[in-house]
Structure formats: structure tokens, C-alpha cells
Design a protein around this nucleic acid. Structure first.
Lengths: 228, 228
DNA sequence: CCAAAAAAGTTGTCGCTGTCAACATCAGCG
DNA sequence: CGCTGATGTTGACAGCGACAACTTTTTTGG
């Protein structure tokens, strides 16, 4: 018997790569745990335990793709939330709150994106992830350059370290709050939105572009793309 | 043959629990990766692959003990660094910088402590870890109450949410910066100290006790100890 | 003081995992 | 057509976390 009449999927799946990543996102959302197996994803996708290896060299690469998908979701969410908003300051606020929301609603995914599951002792994250993370960083940078901290900044070489410092201050605060909320060390989750907007507003009231100029040679953001 | 002459360790190890945790800390420091096996720790300790189960119910409990050890190291380091310092503000600064240093020097351990490897979907972290984390929190709280943000705060019920808000602002910033540095998303590591002190100083200059009052019902810190 | 119980360590086993190798199927192109 | 490469499958292997049964030592109560 080569074919049954109904529901006989073809030998080739068609879009297994996306399906696998999607399955990983589902399982992450359901269990909120990073401890799932590559084989389980294959089962969910209805393929053999080795099929994923035709699309990912190893599990690490698979996780990197999931993380990259997380960054894309994050970037889209930030862009969407700040889209209708007018005023650079308000746009930045909206972005930062969207960032926190994303982390709080997807704690396991956020942990995968930032928790150091990827990138071994050499700090080298897979390229696909770096590219996705860089998009997020540049979106944030745009909002700051546009004047999110009170005044627009011309993007000169002289101002580069100033901009990076501003990004660092914003990102550190928001990243820290997000992780604490996602981890349950600060809560409750129902109040996450209120906590986030209070903290972000309070911060932005005080932050200025001049607050922190990065030391020479310091960077902010995924590394590979800088080494051009 | 019941005994050989040399180096014949007794049937009972004597302090296997500590040895195992110590082995985990070593391997964490060497590989900077969370992917080690319980069996490898047993091998390092020179015992059979099942011996650790006499001291830890499962791997999770073992990891919790390692995480707790990390919190103890952190608390001690913060206390030591702020010990000789005079001035509440300077003490708080020293503590926060020590916190960041601890994370940057032990990124994998810091990831274990905060990365959500422990505590499944129910947010329940093992008790041993919560107790250790609470010590860290209360040390930070002490420095803030003593006037780290400009003025001492009397520890009344009315001020509780004020204090918690101040802790949250400090902790979020420092936690975020630490993770970004540990992850390699901000760097380089050699500049970590400079980055940390600049950011912390800049922040403390602007932070005030009044900046953030926590919403009613919100908490900051490990959860179990609050539910008394 | 010594047996009995408890604590601590060992061996053997189980199912599951990530990964590799070899084979099967199919799509696209000459 | 038939070939080739991409994609999916089957089978195998070592290593893992966990459990059960057994052994050795320490502790303890009469």
C-alpha cells in the first residue's frame, strides 16, 4: 500500500522547518519550561525523530531559530505598539512597555532568548539569532535617536558612545525588570503592566542623553555585526 | 581484600553533599555551560553515579543547592565590599558594583540563579534557594533603608511599598546590566567594572525614594517567605 | 555492649535523549 | 525518461536521569 485515501500526507512535509519552530514555540508556551526534546518536536510535527536534522545541524541551531523567532515577535510587537503613538518620548515608552509585556507573557521564550542556553563558552551566538536581536536593538536605538530621552540626537561618530550609553541604560532597566517579572521574583503578573509603566515612566523622567557615555571600545548589542 | 594500603578512601565519603556542590561550581566555572550531568559530578567526586541521590532527591534539587551557594557567595561579596565603606550612598554603590562583578565573573552560575532553569511552570523555587535569595534581597534593602538613595527611611508599614519600589528600581537596573554583560550582549568584559560603576552612579544620582511606589499587592523578592 | 535500624554508597537496569550512518522517497531538471 | 540532490525514515549507539535491590558503615536504644 503506497497511499491511503484520506489524510495521507505526502512523503515530503513541505515546510518542516517552520513547523518545527512553531511546535517549539507551542510547547514553550504550554509548559513554560526549556526542557523539551527535539524528538518531541518531531512527534508533534508528525515526522520521524531524525527529520529535523535535515533543517538544523543540531539542537542548538534549532533553539537558535526559536530564539530568533522570539526576537522577531518582540520587534514586531514593539513596532506595532509604538506605531500610532505621537511624540518620541511616548513612542519610546510604548516600546519599552511592549518589550516587558512580551517577556512577561512568554517567560520561557524570553529565558531562551537571553538566558545563555545558547552560545557556549565562546560567547558566539548563532548568526540567525544575532541578526534578529540586532533588529530589536536598532529599533530601540531609533526611538532614542528620534528624541525619546528629551532631545533628538544627530547620529555622528562623536555621538555614538552617547547613544550607546542611552540604549544601555534603557535596556538594562527594562531587561532586568522583565527577567525579574518572568522569573516570578517580582510580581504579581497581573500587576506587571502597572509596574512596568510606572518604572519606565519614572526612569525616562530622569534619564538624559548625557547621563552615561560609554567607555571607549565598549559596545551594546549583538556582537558579530559590529566586527565588520 | 578489604583494604589497600594507600589512598583507600572509606566506604562513606564524609561530606559528599558539599563535594558535589563544589564540583558543580568548578565545572560551571570551567565550561561556563549549564549542560553538565549529575553523573559527571559523581565521577569528579569519585563516587558511583547514584551516590548523589542520597543527598539530593533529583537533579533539580542539586541545581537549587548550587544556586543557593551562588547566592551565598553573592551576599558575602556584597557585604565584604561595602563593609569598610562609609556613607549609606557609597555603601549601596559598592554593593551594586559587587553584585555586577559577581555576575560577570560567573556568568553560568548567575544564569543558573536567575535564568529559570529551576522553578517549573508553577514558579515554585526550592526552599533552600529562596532562603539564600532572600538574604541577598534584605542586604540590599538594608542599604536603601539606611539612606542609600539620599535619605534614610523609617521602616513603617506606610513606607513598605516605597522601599520595595526603590529596591525594584535598583535591582532591575543592576540585574539587567549584569545579564547583558554575562551574556556578552554588552561588553567588553574588561570594561565591565567601568560600565557598571558609571551606570550605577548615574542612576543613583537620579533615583529617589519617591520615584516609584509599588502598586498595592505587588512584591519584590523571593515569594515563599512572604506568604507567612 | 551489641543488635537493629538508619544512613550512605554500589551495581544493575529502564526508557529517553541527541546524534550518526545507511537507506527510501520524491521533486526538479537535463 | 533517468539522474541527482533534497528531504524523510529506520536502526543503532552511548550517555543521561531515575528507580530498585543490595552492601557497608554509622548511629542508636535497650
Amino acid at each position: 500500500m503506497t497511499k491511503t485515501l484520506i489524510a495521507d500526507r505526502p512523503y515530503h512535509h513541505g515546510d518542516l522547518r517552520r513547523t518545527i519552530v512553531q511546535a517549539a514555540l507551542s510547547i514553550l508556551g504550554e509548559t513554560q519550561s526549556l526542557e523539551f526534546s527535539l524528538r518531541e518536536l518531531a512527534r508533534r510535527a508528525g515526522v520521524s525523530h531524525n527529520a529535523p536534522y535535515k533543517h538544523f545541524a543540531d539542537k542548538r541551531e534549532l533553539l537558535a531559530a526559536v530564539s530568533a523567532a522570539g526576537f522577531e515577535m518582540l520587534t514586531k510587537r514593539m513596532a506595532r505598539k509604538s506605531d500610532g503613538v505621537i511624540g518620541a518620548r511616548e513612542q519610546l515608552t510604548a516600546m519599552l512597555c511592549a518589550y516587558i509585556d512580551h517577556g512577561v507573557e512568554n517567560p520561557a521564550l524570553y529565558g531562551l532568548m537571553f538566558g545563555g542556553y545558547l552560545g557556549g563558552p565562546d560567547y558566539s551566538r548563532p548568526a540567525i539569532e544575532l541578526a534578529a536581536a540586532e533588529k530589536t536593538r536598532s529599533l530601540l536605538a531609533g526611538a532614542i535617536i528620534a528624541g525619546g530621552l528629551g532631545q533628538p540626537i544627530t547620529q555622528t561618530a562623536r555621538n555614538e558612545r552617547r547613544i550607546a550609553g542611552a540604549i544601555l541604560a534603557c535596556w538594562s532597566l527594562v531587561h532586568g525588570l522583565t527577567m525579574l517579572l518572568a522569573d516570578g521574583l517580582v510580581g504579581p503578573k497581573e500587576k506587571a503592566g502597572a509596574l512596568a509603566s510606572r518604572l519606565v515612566l519614572g526612569m525616562l523622567d530622569r534619564l538624559s542623553v548625557e547621563m552615561l557615555v560609554l567607555p571607549r571600545g565598549a559596545w551594546v548589542g549583538p556582537k558579530v555585526l559590529r566586527s565588520k
